[in-house]
């Protein structure tokens, strides 16, 4: 201790202390700060592979350096989350032009998707793919999620996420089969017609609440068959198809009995 105390007036001491302080702060930050998952795992090889996949599958529309063309937007800064959403739901690579890219069987496997995401993420900073914990529905509060969903999402996606129509042939897809990770991805990246809900708008915890609400809807209804959860129109159709057909059928049967 004495040796240390003796050197505290050394003229290099402030510099050493400053370096130590920076090291500690940086270290603590590195441990505590939310770290983008792909940024950590992305290796140079991943980015290389992603670049090759990009050139083969995406560059035709998005341009050789993902700078965008007249047909497709620039991907600089869209982040890994955007690639993860678009590619893992099969929306990209796009099959044909239309009002909106529809989901279809995915064209890239997990690794290819991750490589592509790593490449696009390397082009500029953007939203990262969420961690397992961020999308864990069991940790969310469905009541808070319900409020947020009804306020922010239901006008397009329907009150329980059964989907809805937008203008000119576009639509808001139904959410029952969308994975938790992609619900999160969609919120932070705002694919196609969807607005971006960034972390200042809806915090990561609130996003998890929303996911919890959507996941809760997958249990169906306590009242029986959900009839698509589409509201009064489908109820009306079933009134006629089930109720009136059965009742008129019964009336014909009763009426035919004697006469």
């Amino acid at each position: 201790m004495k040796a240390l105390a003796a050197r505290r007036h050394h003229r290099a001491a402030p510099v050493v202390l400053l370096l130590l302080a920076l090291l500690v702060t940086g270290g603590v930050y590195a441990v505590l700060a939310p770290s983008p998952a792909t940024a950590d795992t992305a290796s140079v090889e991943d980015i290389e592979t992603g670049y090759k996949l990009f050139q083969a599958n995406c560059a035709t529309c998005h341009g050789p350096n993902a700078e965008g063309t007249s047909q497709a937007p620039s991907l600089v800064g869209v982040g890994a989350a955007s690639v993860d959403f678009q590619v893992s739901t099969g929306r990209m690579p796009m099959q044909m032009n239309g009002p909106q890219a529809d989901d279809k069987p995915r064209q890239m496997n997990e690794e290819q998707t991750a490589a592509l995401a790593a490449y696009v993420a390397s082009l500029g900073p953007g939203p990262a793919i969420p961690t397992e914990e961020q999308v864990d529905a069991s940790k969310g509060d469905p009541s808070s999620g319900a409020r947020l969903f009804w306020t922010n999402c239901a006008m397009c996606h329907n009150a329980v996420g059964a989907g809805g129509a937008l203008s000119e042939g576009k639509w808001a897809p139904e959410l029952h089969d969308v994975s938790e990770r992609n619900i999160y991805n969609a919120m932070v990246t705002g694919p196609q017609s969807m607005p971006v809900f960034n972390d200042a708008n809806i915090t990561p915890e609130e996003k998890r609440d929303i996911i919890a609400y959507i996941v809760e809807q997958r249990d169906g209804s306590a009242g029986g068959l959900t009839l698509g959860s589409l509201g009064p129109v489908s109820e009306g159709i079933w009134t006629w198809v089930v109720g009136m057909v059965l009742l008129i059928g019964a009336a014909v049967w009763i009426g035919a009995k004697s006469s």
Binding site: W150, A159, A162, G164, V233, G236
Partner: peptide, 18 residues
């Protein structure tokens, strides 16, 4: 599933009975 009434809310597929 629709939630308590709040004048600011309206969801897709909001229709009356048939």
């Amino acid at each position: 599933n629709y939630g308590p009434y709040d004048p600011s809310l309206v969801s897709a597929g909001a229709q009356p009975d048939w």
